[in-house]
């Protein structure tokens, strides 16, 4: 018979694992519930039709949504091709190239690097020489955050493509670059798209890199060459203010942002798992 001590230890471990899981889930539920409850109260159609108001006034977040959308799109346009190209290099040459090994290593460091350092880097690069903040600088900062995500997922997706495909194509005399662009990309496309969408979800919510690049703009501005309103910085400014109307708008913006980011995440993971079965 098992001594009591061992049974107790086992039971304690079981309890601990259950408690730990409950602990993690409680925070998730609490945070999401708060965001939904507070945000829903301020969720009105005017959120999407009116601009950011002066203190004490009512309005919406139209210019912020627009600015965020533009910067995220430009970041995708800048970062995705570079990321896919670099990921292709890692996948195709990863085994026998020292450059690929180093780049893979450094890429993973960049993935977890503090985003505020990236923001300062782009400030020194694009804001200081220009003499003013700009939406374009914000887009560059977001592109740098996006880059390692796309590189990593492209690398993984392309590695998963079975070798028989490559060997069959070689046997048919297809040149190497065509193999990659026509065949391997098609085969790994779902993985690459997954990576881009996950990257999109990540950069949509990033605040720190935009603090010193795009700054903010209380008026309507569609120009990437000037400070551009964006959702995370507006939420930051409004939440840290004393005005109740601004708090309400901040929660509404937080709800929309969270719904977008989590919705994208769930959708991507759901379809990825479905595809893998």
């Amino acid at each position: 018979m098992m001594p009591l001590r061992r049974k107790l230890a086992d039971g304690a471990a079981l309890l601990f694992a259950l408690a730990a899981t409950a602990f993690g889930l409680i925070w998730l539920v609490w945070i999401l519930w708060t965001t939904m409850a507070e945000g829903a109260a301020a969720l009105t159609p005017s959120l999407f039709t009116q601009m950011t108001p002066p203190p004490g006034g009512s309005g919406g977040l139209l210019n912020a949504f627009y600015g965020s959308a533009v910067m995220v799109l430009v970041a995708l346009v800048l970062g995705t091709p570079v990321g896919i190209a670099a990921g292709t290099y890692l996948a195709e040459h990863g085994r026998h190239s020292r450059l690929a090994a180093i780049v893979g290593f450094i890429n993973d460091i960049l993935l977890s690097a503090p985003s505020i350092v990236i923001g300062l880097f782009v400030y020194e690069l694009a804001v200081r020489p220009a003499g003013h903040f700009s939406g374009f600088a914000g887009a560059i900062a977001l592109a740098i955050i996006l880059l390692p995500i796309v590189v990593r997922t492209t690398d993984e997706a392309l590695r998963l493509v079975p070798n028989q495909m490559r060997e069959a194509a070689f046997a048919l005399g297809v040149p190497a670059w065509r193999i990659t662009s026509r065949i391997i990309y098609k085969a790994g496309l779902s993985g690459i798209v997954t990576g881009v969408l996950l990257g999109l979800a990540r950069i949509a919510g990033e605040t720190a890199p935009l603090l010193f690049t795009a700054l903010n703009n209380q008026f309507w501005s569609a120009s990437l060459a000037q400070p551009l309103a964006n959702v995370p910085v507006v939420i930051f400014q409004y939440a840290m203010s004393p005005y109740d109307q601004w708090h309400a708008l901040a929660w509404a913006g937080a709800l929309v942002l969270t719904a977008f980011v989590l919705g994208l995440n769930l959708m991507v993971r759901f379809f990825a798992r479905r595809g893998n079965r």
């Binding site: 899981t21 998730l28 708060t34 990033e206 939420i235 930051f236 939440a239 969270t258 980011v261 989590l262």
Partner: peptide, 26 residues
Amino acid sequence: RAPIGMAIELLAAIPSIIYGMWGLFV
């Protein structure tokens, strides 16, 4: 396993500014 695993991963997906707001107000 999959649903709970995904739920825990959602903790990572929540933008950090949301953590900040929840932290300050709640």
